[in-house]
Design a protein around this nucleic acid. Sequence first.
DNA 1: TCGTAAAATGGTTACGTATTCATTTAAAGG
DNA 2: CCTTTAAATGAATACGTAACCATTTTACGA
Lengths: 331, 331
Amino acid sequence: MVSSKDVAKHAGVSQTTVSRVLNTPHLVKKPTVDKVMASIDELNYIPNGHARSLVQNKTNTIALLSGPLHNPFFVDTTQAIVKYANDKGYRVNVQFVNDQKLNEAYASAVENKVDGIIMSCILIDDPIFEKFERMDLPFITYNRKHKMNKHFVEIDNFEAGYMSAKHMIELGHKEIAWIGGPLTVSTFNNRYDGFLQAMKDYKHPLSEDYVIQTDTSKQDITKAFNEMLTLRQPPTAFCAATDSIAMNLIDDASKANLSVPNDLSVIGIDNVDITSHSLIQLTTIGSISEQNLGYLAIRELIEMIENKKNSCVKITESVKVFNRNTTKAFQ
Amino acid sequence: MVSSKDVAKHAGVSQTTVSRVLNTPHLVKKPTVDKVMASIDELNYIPNGHARSLVQNKTNTIALLSGPLHNPFFVDTTQAIVKYANDKGYRVNVQFVNDQKLNEAYASAVENKVDGIIMSCILIDDPIFEKFERMDLPFITYNRKHKMNKHFVEIDNFEAGYMSAKHMIELGHKEIAWIGGPLTVSTFNNRYDGFLQAMKDYKHPLSEDYVIQTDTSKQDITKAFNEMLTLRQPPTAFCAATDSIAMNLIDDASKANLSVPNDLSVIGIDNVDITSHSLIQLTTIGSISEQNLGYLAIRELIEMIENKKNSCVKITESVKVFNRNTTKAFQ
DNA sequence: TCGTAAAATGGTTACGTATTCATTTAAAGG
DNA sequence: CCTTTAAATGAATACGTAACCATTTTACGA
């Protein structure tokens, strides 16, 4: 391994000068710079980032703790986050974390001395939030948020759930189902609350049988869907807590020989990129902003890192309905 | 920042002992281990990975140079790669690289002293390949390969292109188009060669107008598609070099009020996960293996890293047709 | 009880860089 | 030509860990 000392010897200067050539060349005479650069080229020298990090306590690395990519929401956000961070000169350590492994991922991030952490996976009540606050480590959550109500970028989840139910009610559906995820997660919790509020405001009856909180796995959603089909009066409209769930439901419907939207209507939330594909055309609720939550969050995080502002980010984007082809008036 | 020295002082032992407690606890007496662990907990000590990497010359980090996630192929592979690597205890530095920025990404990976590099983006003729070989750094390419014909995991691209054309010919199509990517890339090159060979073997005439090599961007594909539509005799069948291109073509067709497969047939290559969704049902050519190329590649890479085998990985997976709903007999 | 081997622990150093401080060299001003 | 100041360079050190070698403590058999 060729080090800056080797370069120094080769160029007949001190290691200090080599370091200066790379970091503050204006403090070095032109001929010296040339000499050193020539040696660097000749020896194929590449500085050791770990040694630098050790002394500078700065790594130019960000940890991304994302959900899995089979959820298209995380496809959009991961792409946006990695691209933006790379453009700004940061490396990104990506991990696809489930809630159980968050602690491990956290330790790994700290051990690696990352400059900041951007993550989706946090529970409303997560005790790890305090750990983050105690560390003097910039971090932000996107999509989900913690009960402390700080350091987050989200959409207006309550309003999204509300609009979702309202949409189905206004289409004349009577049997409206909710397929959500664990209520320990802010997104699911608030979206469901919005859904309930709309049902209440519109005096729409809601049977317990029509509400299922899944663990968001494909199998669990399929199970939930098939259970609903066995009801005496199966739902004609499905409000899915996320586009990912909605797309799974549509797949399940197809396998049960049911046509969407003719036999049943499905609406999602998130407006992920793929839903606008001509083959999908999922009706959904999403942010009015062009930028996805990952982009907004990484922008804020890097701002925090570089300007040391301990600004308390709290961003909630407004939402609207994207009316496409998976919902239809009843009858 | 609390260091192992602080822990040592707090526990009344030497720094060496602290290090031993964490790495080789069987060499330390039980009471001492307990004492040190207590101090570690109390002080919230987390070891500094950079300092460790510096002395051990091992980072437990892998660099992934992937294509962008709006290509669903990279969604599948990125998910598989990151998951497998994490399970094996490696962090993954993800970068979405275009061919121009490969050199930068390479430097960043070396600077960061990663244990290995897994990448998709390499040109047949890429001079960077030699750099990699000169470095004593395990690396592997998936999907694409270099002309040196080493360190790769791919599908049988020639056969895939061949089957693609054969499929359309056997369905009775006369005007068969090829929409591919730059021939400087092994995948596109070999798939196109296979396509040509099938046309030749079946004595099927092929007009130059029916062949376009795009830069695989959405706009460029749309442009190519619309140009084909203006031909005196537009194609009735489109062989797309990738599923990503195929899905874009279908979107374009829809926007041109053309129905797939009624007005035109489209076949892809790769068999990415999403193509089997009931809403998509893309006919495509893909590996006979359950595991995707990313998985196969990361498995090999980690094997190389851990067993120091400089084994020359050369894996070419056989392919088959996945006959779904986007192709149909002519007339 | 002693001697010897094994177990347990500690002192010191290397890893490769940036930084601080000291020194030399060049430039400028009278 | 000498003095003062700025520019350019070098020597020494810190960062936090693992590894190497040395030393102390313990266990065990005679």
